[in-house]
């Protein structure tokens, strides 16, 4: 059964708070394409745990400051 991801994120906000970092800059720093950053931001793709940690490290915040999962 295909279902949408319930993971949400604050990447766009964090980019804004970090000197209006562009999607291309973030993509370069975590080693993916800009299209993948766009897909993650829009909730169309859930990154691996490793990629999620890399994103959090770029912004210098904890993982759950970037990604949220609703309580069941």
């Amino acid at each position: 059964m295909v279902k949408p991801t319930r993971v949400t994120n604050r990447i766009r906000t964090l980019r804004f708070e970090h000197g209006e970092m562009t999607q291309a800059d973030l993509a370069d720093r975590i080693g993916v394409t800009r299209q993948t950053v766009i897909a993650i931001e829009q909730g169309r793709y859930s990154p691996s745990l490793e990629m999620a940690f890399r994103i959090a490290h770029v912004f210098g915040v904890r993982l759950d400051d970037v990604f949220q999962y609703p309580e069941v």
Binding site: G31, T33, T36, S48
Partner: peptide, 10 residues
């Protein structure tokens, strides 16, 4: 150049 990369999502 950036679009020619192949990442984990690809």
């Amino acid at each position: 150049r950036e679009s020619r990369l192949k990442d984990v999502r690809d």
